[in-house]
């Protein structure tokens, strides 16, 4: 738990990293993080559920892509789709069978936290039984390194993953803005009762929203397995990072999650470049500054007060 990182962008072993490199690392990390935070914030906005199992869903996404692409040789894009489909189904089932009845039967909304933690344990156990505890990696999708005068060095596969992540985020925003489902989901997030009165099928769209959030986690997992690999222990730390991003941006706000992800990505890239000789002090500083920030602005950058 000492290093809660998904991966360090420290693939360059030079003493001083130029500014361009740090910025590029920031964009790369930020786009990944934003996607993780999006799924979490979507689930939170729709159902007021703090999904402790988000990191585990990310790990499952990674393992599914690993199985299809790394082991069975299915094309990468198809493996990614399989990750999305698996997680969407899993998310829909979890919502339908567990969250929906517990939310209805519980005297307090907070009981869903216990359920979410239980699901995190369950998914961890399933990952351990199905995929084992070893670190898994897949062959590179494309070889080669982009090199601009040694000021900016970035392997091509990272650039591709970064572009895919940004495209997915844009696609997701477009979906939420312009499709009928997206409109219904936004209405649900705004005011559950009002949405129901306007004829939105609340139960159905809760399930769709949860599936969508889980799908996003699976998609990032599938994308990142090509670079960092995947292992069982990644789930918990990923959840914590996702919580942090959501808090920076404001819980339940989509633009906030994206902002939070990018800010955390940049802080990490800059911190690791500047403070690399002090080890984990970067994370300590990030955590402490987050606490100070939240003390001044409790609802995050764009959140509604008291979520």
């Amino acid at each position: 738990m000492a290093n809660p990182g998904l991966s360090r962008p420290g693939f360059i072993f030079r003493k001083k990293e130029p500014m361009e490199q740090i910025l590029a690392n920031g964009v790369y990390l930020g786009s990944q993080y934003a996607m993780i935070a999006l799924g979490l914030t979507l689930i939170f906005a729709l159902m007021n559920v703090l999904n402790f199992a988000h990191g585990q869903m990310y790990v499952i996404g990674g393992f599914v892509t690993y199985t299809f692409y790394g082991q069975w040789g299915v094309p990468f894009i198809l493996a990614l789709v399989m990750s999305c489909v698996t997680l969407a189904i899993l998310g829909a089932l979890i919502e339908k069978l567990l969250f929906a009845p517990v939310i209805k039967g519980s005297a307090r909304e907070e009981s869903t936290m216990l359920l979410a933690a239980g699901i995190a344990f369950l998914l961890d156990a399933l990952i351990l039984l199905i995929f084992g505890e070893k670190q898994r990696g897949v062959p590179k999708i494309i070889d080669g390194v982009f090199n601009w005068d040694f000021r900016l060095i970035m392997p091509y596969d990272r650039i591709l993953i970064c572009v895919l992540a940004i495209l997915s985020i844009v696609g997701f925003i477009g979906f939420m803005q312009y499709s009928k489902t997206g409109r219904a989901l936004r209405a649900l997030a705004q005011d559950r009762t009002a949405a129901q009165l306007m004829g939105v099928n609340v139960d159905r769209y809760s399930m769709i929203g949860f599936a969508l959030g889980a799908m996003l986690a699976g998609l990032v997992g599938g994308l990142l397995v090509t670079i960092t690999g995947v292992n069982l222990g990644m789930g918990g730390p990923t959840s914590i990072k996702a919580f942090m991003m959501v808090m920076i941006g404001g819980a339940g706000v989509i633009s906030g999650a994206i902002a939070g992800g990018i800010i955390l990505g940049f802080m990490e890239a800059i911190g690791l470049a500047v403070l690399s000789q002090y080890g984990d002090i970067t994370y300590l500083l990030i955590f402490v500054s987050l606490m100070i920030f939240l003390a001044i602005r409790p609802q995050g950058l764009m959140g509604k007060p008291w979520g």
Binding site: F44, N48, L50, M113, I240, F243, M244, V246, M247, A251, F287, L290, M291, L294, P298, Q299, G300, W306, G307
Partner: peptide, 9 residues
């Protein structure tokens, strides 16, 4: 949730 998350951090 904000308090919950900050205490987690």
């Amino acid at each position: 949730v904000y308090f919950a998350m900050i205490t987690l951090v």
